[in-house]
Structures are given as C-alpha cells and as structure tokens.
Design a protein around this nucleic acid. Structure first.
Lengths: 230, 230
DNA sequence: GGCAAGTTTTTTGTATCCAATCGATACCTT
DNA sequence: AAGGTATCGATTGGATACAAAAAACTTGCC
C-alpha cells in the first residue's frame, strides 16, 4: 500500500503464471519451456526466465539444470512441512491481528467472505484461490509485511497442494470458519481465534491428506523419486 | 544433503554477494551496479541480475526501477517485524527439533559452537555470520526444509540489521546461550528450550534496538523516507 | 551567483545470439 | 534380440547488443 513499486513486465508474467498454476490451468508436473511461455505472452525468454526464478524460490515450480522448469509436484512430506509452517505463521497472524486490527480491517475481511459466499457451491480452482486469498488478506492486515509475505507463499503452495491432492475441490466448510475467525478477532478473543484458526487449518490439511489413493503407477513412483518420473 | 542441486554461476555470485552483505563488506545503502559487480566477478550482467533478483526477494537488497539495486537498509519497523517473525519461526524449530533431533545432530551443533568459541573475543562481521549460521544449522536439523528456508532468510536479514544497528558487533553472550539451547534440546526440556530461545532472540533484538544513535544525516533521513535519501 | 533547460553519459530493461548440456533415437556389437 | 554407445536434436545457461530511462553535466539566462 505504501510502496508504489511500479511493476515491470517480469512481475506481470510472474503474476499470470502464478494464477495459472493456482487455478490448475497449469497442472503439476507440466513443463514450462521458456520460449513457449515467452511467445504466449509476447515477451522474450529473458523475462520468462526471471519470472520462473521467482516462482522457483517460492516453491511453485522446480527447475532442473538444462532440463527446464516444471510446475512443482509437492510430495506428501513436503506438503506436511508446508502445512506445519503455515499453522505456525497463521497463529502468529492471529496473535498480532488481535492487537492491531481495526474495524475497518474487519470490514475488508467481511467483504471478502461475502465474495467467497457468492460463489458458494461452485467448487473448483476459483474457490480454492479465493479461500487462500482470505488468509493472505488477513496476514496483510496484521501489519507485519514480512509475515504477510511468508504467509502468502505458504498459502499459495497450499493451494497447489489442495489442487493436487484434495479429492473434492470443495471449500464450503471453510467459508463459515472464516466468518467465525473474524468474529473471534472482533471480540478480541485470542484463545478462541487461535484455536479456530488451528482447527481450520487442521481441517484444510486433512482434506488434503486423505485424498486420492495412490492408485496409479505414476503417483506411487512420484513418492520414490521425482527425478525418475520424467 | 539429499539433493545434489548442481550449482550454477548465478548461485555462486549470489552466495558471494550474500556473504559480502552479511559481513558488511557491502554496506547498507551501497549501490550495486550490474556491470561493476559483473566485471568484478568476471561474469556478465545477466548472471548478476539473476543473483540480484534473488537477493531482492530475500530482502537483502532493494531495487528501484531504472535506478538499480542497493544493499537494503531495513528501517526500525522492518527490523522489528523481522525479529517478530524470527521468534515465531525459531520457537517452532525448537518444538520440532526436540521431537526429531538425534545425538548426531547435537554433535553437529556442538561442533559449530566450538567454532564460534574459537573466534570468541574477536568481534566483527565473521562473528555475526557464525552466530547466524548456528540458527540456520539448527533449523536445517529440524528436518523441515520449508521452515529452514524461512529461518535462513530471517537470520540473514537479522545479520544485516545487527551489522547496521548494533553498537558493538560482539556476540559473546550469544555463544553461551547457544550451548544452553543445545543442552535443553538434548534433555528434551521443551519449555526450557523455548524460553531460552526466546530469551536469546530477545537479547539479540535488544542489542540491535539500543544501538548507534542516529548521528549522521543519512541515517536520520533514512528514517523519514528512503526515496529522499538518494 | 544561482537557477533552469537542454544535452550527454551512465545504467538499467529487454531482445537476440552462441555454446554447453541433457535426453532420445538409432546404430552397432555381442 | 538385447544392451551399450554414439550421434542428433531440443532446450537451457550465459553473453552480447540495442533501446529507454534516469542522472549528471553543461550552458545560457536571469
């Protein structure tokens, strides 16, 4: 908000790729050749490359030397690690937010939840994205920008994980929980807010954990070594 | 350890710049022209640029469009935010580490502390770097790679902050505290370990907070608006 | 002497080009 | 026919070249 940070072409490509991955247009494991992406967006490989570097440091893509970039396929272990960090960070967001957030902030959150409710029932990528954006918004409103950046990263990676593993893309239950969290924050009920958030993330994680059984050869092999999968 | 991740030239330049910043060879606010850096390391601007992008996403450098990259000058507020996140992450490291760490891991930590003690008394950049590396090692041994990455980032940024603000570069008191933390982990005393870590980070943060008075014009201006300083 | 506008110079942003590396296919050997 | 090896193609890693923007300098005017 306070930094105008005039955006460059790289940022735009980065944003687009990011959304495309989160919304599953680009599916996990898919190759991202630099020149292919480049000519799609009408920019040179240089730009694409920078965007891919950023996406790689975020963990949304992995790149192998002289092989190129691929949309990340987080393993179960990696997913668990990400969820663990996310829980840690988001409870901190709650603790900070309860001290610092204003009514104006709460209204922003309310507005977001209404947007989520508007597409209630329509499962799919957009639902996942909106659900994630609630958490990102919450983190931003905490006022700690560093924290917000990390939350953004883990939420995006979680979105990818959800898209990969969740058997249903439904996020219905989550929306109500979002409202409850806002209310707990409003009433400055720290313990409740934290436990709500933990429960919420636990629920999200569980829906990811007990998903599609590893019924294909590929999915089994992918556990034992990504490098062989391609 | 388990990923060989053959390193590229970009990685090397990144590492070097990173160390140079942490050890204060490159001081906060200093410009980093791409071709200057490039010819120093004997590589082209392309490489330097990639390294700078990575350093920027880490928060060690800031870059302004068409102006170039500068070593970051974290403000007091930013520093506080970073310390807050760091405390949050490192207490999580302790909680995980106490469950998962083996005697072998503890020995690695011991070895590192011995290395720190070896240069005890010699204040300065190297001391700050080693002190930070203890925390990074600890995070890596926790087994959660995602957590370790974030801890690495905040520790590096803290090192920059210390270098900027701490009046003395001394890290003497820290070394003993490191040993105490290892012992608490060894004896699986979770509460003690967490409180030791919190105390340790509190002490570190305080030494940063009560530092060099803003005695130069630049340092004063930098508080009131970075964009005016240049 | 100071200020302002125009010009020069430096530096970044982007595109293109060359070389090195990896994977795949085809061929040769056993 | 199966396995190993060599060549070929595709794609990235890295360097150079060109364009645009900003900073610095100069010059003229008040």
């Amino acid at each position: 908000m306070r930094e105008q940070k005039q955006s460059t072409t790289t940022d735009a490509v980065y944003e687009l790729l990011c959304r495309a991955i989160i919304e599953q247009a680009l599916q996990p494991g898919m190759r991202l050749p630099e020149d292919t992406v480049g000519e799609q967006f009408g920019v040179s490989r240089t730009i694409v490359r920078h965007a891919l570097v950023r996406l790689e440091t975020m963990g949304l893509v992995v790149s192998r030397r002289n092989r190129g970039a691929f949309v990340a396929e987080p393993s179960i272990e990696e997913a668990q690690q990400i969820f663990q960090v996310r829980r840690c960070l988001e409870t901190e967001v709650i603790r900070i937010g309860i001290e610092t957030m204003s009514e104006e902030d709460f209204e922003q959150l309310d507005a977001h939840v209404r947007r989520e409710q508007a597409i209630r029932g329509k499962d799919g990528p957009v639902s996942i994205r909106l659900s994630g954006e609630f958490h990102i918004l919450l983190a931003q409103l905490s006022g700690n920008e560093v924290l917000a950046r990390y939350v953004t990263e883990v939420v995006l990676r979680c979105s990818l994980i959800m898209a990969m593993y969740a058997k249903s893309h439904s996020s219905d239950c989550a929306v109500d929980e979002h409202s409850q969290i806002i209310e707990a924050l409003r009433t400055a009920n720290a313990d409740l807010a934290v436990s709500l958030m933990e429960h919420h993330l636990g629920a999200v994680a569980e829906r990811a954990a007990f998903k599609k059984a590893p019924d294909t050869v590929e999915s089994i092999l992918s556990r034992y070594g990504k490098e062989l999968a391609h």
